[in-house]
Simulated scan of single mutants.
Amino acid sequence: MSIYEKARAASITLASALRTQKDAALLAMASALESSAAAIIEANAADVEVARKSGTPESTVDRLLLTQARIGGMAQGLRDIAGLPDPVGEVVRGGTLANGLQVRQIRVPFGVVGIIYEARPNVTADAAGLTLKSGNAVLLRGSGSAARSNAAIVAALRSALAATGLPADAVQLVDSSTRDSVKELMRARGQVDVLIPRGGASLIRTVVEESSVPVIETGVGNCHIYVDESADLDMALRILLNAKVQRPSVCNAAESLLVHAAVADEFLPAAMKALADNGVTVNTNEEDFGTEFLSLEISLKIVDSLDDAIAHIRRYGSGHSEAIITSSVRAAARFTDAIDAAAVLVNASTRFVDGGELGFGAEIGISTQKLHARGPMGLPELTSTKYVITGDGHIRA
């Protein structure tokens, strides 16, 4: 059997699996990650060594790197998913029509989900957990740079699935040694129900443009922090540093800073020093305004008004996450109404735009499109719906 046939067979079993079965498997998967931590870290060290020798930027190496703490976080993510409600079978809407027909729209799994992602081995565990809980089989096509790490993780997850009586083929790793496997996955319409790309702009664009399988587009993150004229400047500095420095290599890190001219003289000296102390390079050239740096760089522009800030974000933003720091209720309302993004934050770091932080257990990605799902995608976003219509001999006149 091909990987697609195995995945389809596994998806049929998972579609009717009880929540207790899925949760038991998730807990076993979490324990398997922890008990296999030494083997996973050893495999990851080999990937990291190759990446560094080939001159891979440290921001990318950071995404690739696994530590005991990060594996513990992956395991906890699986346990958190086990504690969440099962979306499968949830009644989205329903009722009884005037003619007596009972109509229910219920959540159902997609079936087979393909994930194409870059050097983020933690995605392997997150994706496996979310797809399992939502009743889907998953085909994981990570990057070749994380091949050893992903193989070790998937081996642990599959052993846990088999031990709990669910099909191990619910989680399969697609060969990453050749680009042909990506092309095949993108053309597997009818065998794969949906593809979700996670990575840089080039990867996402390629999948969106070349796939014949339906795609849920996750987007790059040119995220802005706008410091309004009424902002608490101490708060603004704390938020800016957290959003830029805490983990600069991820899509919800701040990449652009906008400062109202009325507070620029007071705010910028302290902000520039704090950024410099943390190794951040500040860019003020227009060609940098649309850049997702994914490193210790940020663009800066002083704006004359809230509306100028909104116009700047509309021009250069990627529709991911945008934040305003303000003490004005009116300014906050104007900003949240006018900004067209998957997430808009008021007086909070863009780093909160994350499935785990928002209580989803983990996320399959952050969608910046407007169809099906938008923002951090948790369990409900990994389902479709179907209508169940029950009658008593009803016929249409």
Rank of each mutant, 00 (worst) to 15 (best):
I302M: 05
I325D: 14
V171P: 10
D23R: 03
G89W: 00
R238D: 15
L379F: 01
G165W: 06
A119N: 11
A309V: 05
P121N: 08
A32K: 05
R120P: 08
R148A: 15
I116C: 11
L130W: 04
A125P: 11
T206Y: 13
S176M: 02
L18K: 13
E209R: 12
G111W: 00
V91T: 09
I81S: 11
A151V: 02
Q105G: 03
R189G: 10
L268A: 06
G77W: 00
T56L: 11
G356N: 09
L27T: 06
V113R: 07
Q369F: 01
E217L: 10
Q172K: 08
A15Y: 02
R63H: 06
E210S: 15
V192G: 15
K244N: 06
D307Q: 14
A69W: 00
C251V: 03
S321E: 01
F289G: 10
P248A: 10
R330G: 13
T284L: 09
A341E: 12
V282P: 14
L240S: 13
A231T: 05
A147W: 07
I225C: 09
G393K: 00
L268D: 07
T385K: 01
I196L: 15
Q102Y: 02
V353N: 15
R120Y: 05
D392P: 01
G114E: 02
